[in-house]
Design a protein around this nucleic acid. Sequence first.
DNA 1: ACAAAAGTGTTCCTTCTACACCCATGA
DNA 2: TCATGGGTGTAGAAGGAACACTTTTGT
Lengths: 232, 232
Amino acid sequence: MTSRDHAVVRLALDLAILTVREGALQVLTVTRGNEPFRGRPALPGGFLRDGEDLHAAAVRELREETALDGGAMHLEQLSVYGAPDRDPRGRIISVAYLAIVPDLPAPTAGSDAVAAAWLPVAAIRGGLAFDHDRILDDAVERARSRLEFTTLATAFCAPVFTIGDLRTVYEVVWGQSLDPRNFSRKVLSTVGFVEATDEKRNPLVGRPAALYRRGDRTVLNPPILRGAATVA
Amino acid sequence: MTSRDHAVVRLALDLAILTVREGALQVLTVTRGNEPFRGRPALPGGFLRDGEDLHAAAVRELREETALDGGAMHLEQLSVYGAPDRDPRGRIISVAYLAIVPDLPAPTAGSDAVAAAWLPVAAIRGGLAFDHDRILDDAVERARSRLEFTTLATAFCAPVFTIGDLRTVYEVVWGQSLDPRNFSRKVLSTVGFVEATDEKRNPLVGRPAALYRRGDRTVLNPPILRGAATVA
DNA sequence: ACAAAAGTGTTCCTTCTACACCCATGA
DNA sequence: TCATGGGTGTAGAAGGAACACTTTTGT
């Protein structure tokens, strides 16, 4: 065996599961019970199994962590992280996935016996194990970009939602405030973005808001661009 | 060993190396000398080596195929392809990279003893080995999108080039014609896209064109969007 | 002089932005 | 009737598309 041999690697999957909770962009983390990085938060993940498809493995991990299935969430491949020294236990290549989920009623406990918790992305600041800070950075930037060009924002929302709910997603993920009136028009004038229901929701105070469902469309044309606008 | 064990995988890299040659978008292919898919064209690639960084491995493969180094080209990770049955020889996960190179003076021969050839992307139509057709599709779409939002088009060009050369890249990659006058203005009004030289190039007929170098900027703001415009 | 390609100026139209204004509800 | 959030109209600014027109070369 020389150094020119084919590398022997293990293939891991890591999930950056994002949601909007309590007015902040949050990510699901698990606390590591073993070395290395014992006690530090990390992104949930696991190893690929024999004969298992990559995407199917990501779906499985997501279900184990959030009990969410199929259509209720968004799951896409993010990138591969394969620096030789990224894991002190050996050569482990990680395929990272970005998942977007609504604010879950059952908040945290996964089926694994590890402590899972939602942490605000803004509060993490380099505290994750391995190279997961970099994965999280990439995930957040991908999500921000997806809001511009796709209807991904609806994946952050419950099955029915108001235009105001949707706007809050944009404001929290982008970290800037948007004009409610122009936002409303843009969303409603894009056919297939949202689909009207005949229900309304009464806020604690103020005029009732119409409720909508997700539409068929996935790509946003024209896009909703984040300007260098007024940061909230 | 049950099916719940961690999968044992080999990790391959495949390169979609794109260029503009003879007025067409072309991709570098190698003809397979062994089964499976013997005699069929495939994307060049190879296996990750012990202790080798993923991106470094992609750079190495690109150099082996094109004798191009570092700054003269663009190289970015595309995606991971990991369907269990994607390679009949066993469980091989492939990390695909997109490379953009200028029209090379030394056209084809790689250092390996395999037959390398540039093929027009439009002429391939499902003829590649493994799942390389899908990788190529993803690569072309990524390149098209990159032209909209980044200065990637300069990576298709020689070290010095005219605005007309650059426009040809857009037209060939997008498959649509652009207004030369508006295109010229957009490029020149984006500071950092191209950098003027004081040389000119005389075409066989017509007014000489100013020559430019790549600029510092990588992101294009505002972007140059492909309309649903007049298809060439 | 003429053909061909490079580049400039100008007009029209679409889209974004900002903000005045009206609507519907609970307390 | 007042505070609060939902939603419409509209004027100005900015950017893209189309195209007439000028410039510079080789033959």
